[in-house]
C-alpha cells in the first residue's frame, strides 16, 4: 500500500517535471516539504517559475490554491479576511481572506510590513486564524509557498531569523540549464501546459502519505548522525549560531519524507545530506570572521567536518 502510494507521489513528481523543466531536485524537495507538512520558502529572482511550481503542485495534488502578491500597503486583514456588517441580516459577516485555501502562494513576502508578515506566519504556525475574537480553522492540508527576492533590498522588509525558522525548507530554483531553457522556449507558454495537468492525488491521499512518511524507520546510528551535525552547528568554528531543536526535528522529518519518497523503509545518511541545505541553510549563520560565506558553503563545510561513519 505504502509502495503504491509512494509510486503515485513519484508519478506526481514526474508530472511536475513536465512543467518545471530541469529542476527535478527542487521539485522533489518541494514535494518532500509538502509531505512533511511544512511550509516552503523560495528565494529567487522573479520569473524563475515559482508561481508555476506552486500552481502545478496544487493541481497535481488536487489542492485548492490561491495567490497573494504582497505589497507594502497591504494590511493583515487583506490576507486573513474581514468582518463586514451585513445590513439584511443585521450581523457581521466574515469574509474569508485568501489565506483560507489549501495551498497558498505568498509572492514576495518581504515586500510587506512586518505586521502583515507576522499575521501570515502566525496563521502558518497555528493552522488557524483569530480575527475579532473568533478563531477559525484553516483547511487541513495547509501549505504555504512564500517567495522572496534576495536582490532587491530597497523598500523591503527581510524576514527576521525567528520567522525564517517557521519555514521547513528554503530552496532556490535558479536559472534553468541551457537545454531545459531551449525546450521551454520551443514549447512556449507554460500556463497552457499547467491547465492540462491532471490531479494525480487527492488531499486525503496526501494526508495518508504524510502519515506514512513519519513511519519510516530512523536507526539510532542515524539519529546520532543528525545530532552530531546539529551539534557541530552549535559548537564548530565558523557558526555564529546553530540549529535549534525545532530545526533538528525538521531535519529528521524531512529526511524521513525524502526516504519515503524514494521508497526506502529506513532513513540513510544520504537522505539527511540531501535535505540538509534546504532545511538547515536558513537556520544558521556564519560567524563574523567567516562573513561572506554563503549558507551553501557553510553546509558543505559542515558536511565535511562531521564524519558520517564515526561511531557513537
Amino acid at each position: 500500500m505504502a509502495d503504491t502510494l509512494a509510486k503515485q507521489v513519484q508519478q506526481a513528481c514526474e508530472q511536475l517535471d513536465q512543467v518545471i523543466l530541469g529542476k527535478a531536485q527542487q521539485v522533489r524537495l518541494a514535494v518532500t516539504c509538502l509531505l512533511s507538512g511544512g511550509h516552503l520558502l523560495i528565494e529567487d529572482l522573479p520569473g524563475m517559475g515559482k508561481t508555476t511550481l506552486a500552481h502545478a503542485l496544487a493541481s497535481v495534488f488536487g489542492l485548492a490554491d490561491s495567490r497573494i502578491q504582497f505589497t507594502s500597503d497591504m494590511l493583515p486583514a487583506d490576507i486573513l479576511g474581514v468582518s463586514v456588517f451585513d445590513a439584511p441580516s443585521g450581523a457581521f459577516v466574515f469574509h474569508p481572506g485568501p489565506v483560507f485555501t489549501q495551498l497558498l502562494l505568498a509572492d514576495e513576502i518581504n515586500r510587506t510590513t512586518p505586521k502583515t508578515q507576522s499575521a501570515l506566519l502566525e496563521a502558518m504556525e497555528e493552522g488557524q486564524v483569530t480575527q475579532d475574537g473568533e478563531t477559525r480553522q484553516l483547511p487541513d492540508p495547509f501549505f504555504v509557498i512564500a517567495t522572496q527576492n534576495p536582490l532587491t533590498q530597497f523598500g523591503t522588509f527581510p524576514l527576521p531569523e525567528s520567522q525564517l525558522d517557521r519555514f521547513l525548507m528554503r530552496i532556490n530554483l535558479g536559472y534553468p540549464s541551457p537545454e531545459a531553457e531551449r525546450t521551454l522556449l520551443m514549447r512556449g507558454d507554460t500556463l497552457s501546459r499547467r491547465q492540462r495537468l491532471p490531479a494525480v492525488l487527492s488531499p486525503e491521499k496526501l494526508r495518508e502519505a504524510q502519515q506514512a512518511c513519519q513511519q519510516v524507520h530512523a536507526s539510532s546510528d542515524l539519529i546520532h548522525y543528525v545530532q552530531r551535525l546539529v551539534q557541530y552547528t552549535r559548537e564548530g568554528d565558523g557558526f555564529s549560531y546553530g540549529v535549534s531543536p525545532r530545526g533538528a526535528l525538521a531535519l529528521l522529518r524531512c529526511a524521513r519524507s525524502w526516504a519515503w519518497l524514494h521508497e526506502r523503509q529506513h532513513v540513510v545518511p544520504e537522505d539527511v545530506q540531501r535535505v540538509l541545505e534546504p532545511v538547515v541553510g536558513h537556520r544558521i549563520r556564519a560567524a563574523e570572521d567567516m562573513a561572506g560565506h554563503t549558507s551553501a558553503r557553510l553546509v558543505s563545510e559542515l558536511l565535511s567536518r562531521v564524519d558520517v561513519m564515526a561511531s557513537g
Binding site: V268, P269, E270, Q273, L303, S304, R305, V306, D307, V308, M309
Partner: peptide, 10 residues
C-alpha cells in the same frame, strides 16, 4: 580515500 561526508554507498 573516503571523505568524512561520504557514506560507504556514496
Amino acid at each position: 580515500q573516503r571523505q568524512p561526508d561520504e557514506t560507504l554507498n556514496r
